[in-house]
Write a protein that binds this DNA or RNA. Structure first.
Length: 627
RNA sequence: CGGGAUGUAGCGCAGUCUGGUAGCGCACUUGAAUGGGGUUCAAGGGGCCGGAGGUUCGAAUCCUCUCAUCCCGACCA
């Protein structure tokens, strides 16, 4: 049995090491009498030493790919497949291979530390949840097909947890009864399942994904707001410590409700979401929520007489404007929306676009959509392109900017005609006015008036103030200091852990591969033996591996019998921040080389100084991600 | 769910139109040379052509049905 031989060797040498300090003993072993090949083949020996922080490429499940599988579209997905981080099992469902998992664990660890620091407690909730709870909260029906439902052998209806408001609220209502036990902040890091309509982009939008979800319970609104701020701060720390470039943006709280909501967006050109950030202050918001500084009220303009003009065949804003020689900013377009099946006319300046989420919120509708030409005609009697607010029988909602206009142009509700010099109040009155439009880069910051920038981001965290929505639905109450029974004031706080790793790659890569931020890299250092056939070089590489390991440096040792080119390519692809190369330079000048993945400089360092130099470099790089 | 596309070896693809013994590159195994940016040569192993049914003497190829995957849209605490 070959394994037995290995063990005998390892236990013999292993036990002898125990009597001496590790470092000196190792040096002795490697440098003097222990044949390096015996060590190389002696997995158990080093495994014990490494505590899993270091690994050999030759023994690791790390299937790198030269070519990108056809299924991958976005960078992070392609690179994670190629670098051997993940493999797909089914649509939106992935296996995390050792390297991918290491990165995920790093993010998790940072999340844990910061959540714990912020006073939250970790627990672990079930993935399978009974339907009754979801029926009680009303979400069994509301949640839709994204909730994967099934029946167990006793015909009990169940679902896979896409989120855990119900479970946590149930847990707390059963166990917390007094304001004295509050506030309470609980979190877990767990695999979630959401049966997405269309999973895509690898880990960016999977059906199964790893998420940190936290829930807070406070006695008062004020307390809840404090908790919210605490979480916001913790999130800042988390993403900073992950080494990511990010912004916290004001967000729409969506169907979950509540007044406060921030999304944490990793800035990346390939991000799915467009966000608005101010170049001069800290204002940032996603498009659904972004406001612009209101344009100053214009000088009172004399109202001119309403005139009807013929505009044959001119339907589009641009065509009408050209024909009438006016600016789109002086035209009001009328869009017909279906809000939960009822038509509404939305008025907007010609050069603005509707932000449908804002509209939806204003109308309190669960669904809004633009009507097609036929529906438009059916509800107004006018073909699209000639619609206007004057004399229109539908409910009118106007964007704020419209209310600042005077003597503007609109459709005449008659084919081939428009009205000019229209004025609000005199010619029509909107039922409601509100901010309904999409912010553009021409707008100014609503906070400081500074210049706004539109950029793209990936949502990796989202915090909400829930209020009492769930505690009321599930009758989760406690007794306050007056002995009065009131519902918990809740908040919920999510971080997409697996997505954060994908986002990090999306943000940090080049044509050769990943460039990991140090704090979440699967290893800190990749050590390359560039000459496995050269005994002196191999011996030196082995001793560095041992030395790094005993010094707490997380190292991936490429000990494969491959040519240097292959090792360089794989190292670039995997993206470990520091690369240490042991090759000819050692024989010639007694030096090894250190190269940062992010840079293009290679530094030659005397062999003896390798470990200390590397430790220094790692420490100073980590400082950039500390607070 | 609507629109589009694709399923042939681990990965990337050709072959399908025009039916006739299943191919190429990479990866893998063995040997040799080579050894600082995916090296070279030689010899190998590996496929129920997504699945089911049909047409045919004969189907990867034609027909029907199905399943899966990807893209665009709708959707996204």
């Amino acid at each position: 049995m070959p394994a037995a031989t290995g063990w005998a060797l390892s236990s013999k040498k292993g036990s002898s090491t125990k009597k001496f300090p590790r470092t000196s003993c190792l040096k002795f072993l490697f440098m003097n009498w222990m044949p390096w090949r015996a060590i190389k083949n002696n997995f158990h020996f080093l495994y014990t030493l490494s505590k899993g922080l270091s690994m050999r490429f030759s023994q690791l499940l790390l299937p790198t790919l030269k070519e990108t599988p056809a299924e991958a579209e976005v960078v992070s997905h392609k690179l994670m497949l190629r670098a051997g981080f993940i493999r797909k099992l089914a649509s939106g469902i992935y296996c995390y291979l050792p390297l991918g998992l290491k990165s995920i664990r790093k993010v998790e660890q940072i999340v844990r530390e910061e959540m714990n620091n912020a006073g939250a407690q970790e627990l672990l909730l079930p993935m399978v949840q009974p339907a009754d709870l979801w029926q009680e909260s009303g979400r069994w029906h509301k949640y839709g097909a994204e909730l994967l439902r099934f029946t167990d052998r006793h015909q009990r209806e169940s679902c896979l947890g896409p989120t855990h408001e119900e479970v946590i609220t149930d847990l707390v209502r059963k166990n917390i009864h007094s304001y004295r036990s509050l506030p309470l902040n609980l979190y877990q890091i767990q695999t979630k399942f959401r049966d997405e309509i269309r999973p895509r982009f690898g880990l960016m939008r999977g059906r199964e994904f790893i998420m940190k979800d936290g829930y807070s319970f406070d006695a008062t609104e004020k307390g809840a707001e404090e908790t919210y701020e605490k979480m916001k701060y913790a999130y800042h720390r988390i993403f900073t410590r992950c080494g990511l470039s990010f912004r916290a943006v004001e967000a729409d709280s969506g169907t979950i409700g509540g007044s406060f909501s921030h999304e944490f967006m990793v800035l990346a050109a390939t991000g799915e979401d467009t966000i608005v950030i101010c170049k001069e202050c800290s204002y940032a918001a996603n498009m659904e929520k972004a406001r612009a500084m209101e344009t100053p009220a214009p000088q009172a303009e004399e109202e001119l007489p309403l005139t009807k003009v013929e505009t044959p065949g001119k339907r589009k804003v641009q065509a009408v404007c050209e024909f009438l020689a006016i600016s789109p900013a002086n035209l009001v377009k009328t869009l017909i929306y279906m809000a939960d099946g009822k038509p509404v006319a939305v008025l907007l300046r010609g050069d603005h676009e509707v932000q449908e989420v804002k509209l939806q919120n204003l109308l309190g509708a669960t669904e809004v959509r633009l009507t097609d030409d036929k529906e438009t005609f059916d509800s107004t009697g006018t073909p699209s392109g000639y619609l206007g607010p004057v004399g229109l029988s539908l409910p009118l909602v106007a964007d704020l900017e419209v209310t600042k206009m005077a003597n503007f142009t609109v459709g005449a509700n008659e084919k081939n005609f428009h009205l000019q010099n229209v004025n609000i109040g005199r010619d029509f009155t909107p039922a409601r006015t509100a901010d309904l439009r999409m912010v553009t880069k021409a707008d100014r910051c609503p906070v400081c008036g500074g210049q706004l920038e539109l950029t793209r981001g990936i949502e990796v965290g989202h915090i909400f103030k829930l209020g009492t929505t769930y505690s009321e639905a599930l009758k989760a109450t406690f007794l306050d200091d007056q002995g009065k029974e009131i519902p918990f004031v809740m908040g919920c706080y999510g971080i997409g852990v697996s997505r954060a790793v994908a986002a990090a790659i999306e943000q940090n890569h080049d044509k050769d591969g990943i460039i990991f931020p140090l704090p979440i890299a699967p290893f800190q250092v990749m050590l390359l033996n560039l000459s496995t056939q050269d005994e002196a070089i191999s011996k030196a590489a082995e001793s560095l591996y041992a030395d790094f390991t005993t010094n707490g440096i997380e190292v991936l040792f490429d000990d494969r019998d491959e040519r240097p080119g292959i090792k360089f390519k794989d190292a670039d692809l995997i993206g470990i921040p520091f690369r240490v190369m042991v090759g000819n330079n050692l024989t010639k000048e007694g030096k090894i080389e250190i190269r940062e993945r992010a840079g293009s400089r290679t530094t030659a360092v005397p062999f003896e100084e390798a470990t200390s130099r590397l430790k220094q470099m790692i420490e100073s790089a980590m400082k950039n991600c500390q607070l």
